[in-house]
Design a binder for these strands. Structure first.
Lengths: 153, 153
DNA sequence: CCTGAAAAATTATTCGC
DNA sequence: GCGAATAATTTTTCAGG
């Protein structure tokens, strides 16, 4: 699963435009279409490229209210954590969730229409998650970087 | 810019697969190809659909080390914040950055290969950002939800 | 492992209704 | 908005270096 410079170029191009035709990709990376198609297929097969997705404007969708909720849980045994994880994954408004080292707290990113929408989501879906002990919400005032996918490639 | 249920279905489908042909989309939403193509074109034109992107596996790329860095800045005047924002946007390893209400702190999500990689990025790129006053780093132990794009649609 | 062109398949667009 | 015909793209294949 080694990626050479050509693979990186292909990935970069597909990160910028998932619908770029193979012919154009081939031109960009300086190869013919055949090897480019093979490389892409291979990267799909090994699960490196997991899919292709439309990128939507949060502003145009009216979904600009971003809040990070820090959650401490009352039970940090594996079974409880698994249960918590599964419950979090079932909430569509949760865009991201990471377990943070230290006190086994979670950091949950919630996207909503506005403060009222967030309060509803929080009351109905976040605060009722299993084993929630304590939460702190950090409301975003401005999206400085959003959806950056350069991944340092 | 009103979106009806059909538009939502189209967006959902394109979030799941940006390369879905119009014929298949049409079948899914119960319309013929013509109106579906028109709706997509319209949503692209008004900037609701901003693009199409390949989704890569952080695991396969070896980029699983996620850290949230909380940064307090020493100057919260508009000009300073603009300068900070521009500098943050220039760092490819910064996947997201939000300004948080309260003390005008920033929450910056950094993706790296491993702890060593993060330390280098932090030393070379994060800690030298303009007007950085104080930072706290929160290291992720587990990605519970990553790249969820359902957006509550 | 790559090239280049021919062939095949898929996809998008355009029409009258 | 429909559906069929048209037109255009795009992917795949294959002989050859």
């Amino acid at each position: 699963m080694k990626l050479d410079a050509t693979d990186h170029k292909i990935l970069s191009a597909l990160l910028a435009n998932a619908r770029m035709p193979i012919a154009e990709l081939a031109r960009k990376v300086g190869l013919s279409k055949t090897p480019v198609a093979q490389r892409i297929k291979h990267m799909e097969e090994i699960g490196l490229i997991t899919g292709y997705r439309a990128i939507l404007s949060p502003v145009k969708l009216g979904l600009t209210h971003v809040t990070y909720v820090e959650i401490s849980v009352s039970d940090t045994r594996e079974a409880a954590l698994q249960q918590f994880n599964a419950a979090v994954r079932a909430i569509p408004e949760v865009e991201e969730c990471y377990m943070i080292a230290g006190g086994c707290d979670y950091l949950v990113k919630v996207r909503a229409r506005d403060m009222g929408d967030f309060r509803r989501i929080f009351a109905e879906k976040i605060s009722v998650l299993p084993f929630v002990n304590n939460t702190s919400s950090y409301v975003s005032m401005e999206a400085v970087v959003e959806q950056n996918s350069a991944l340092g490639i």
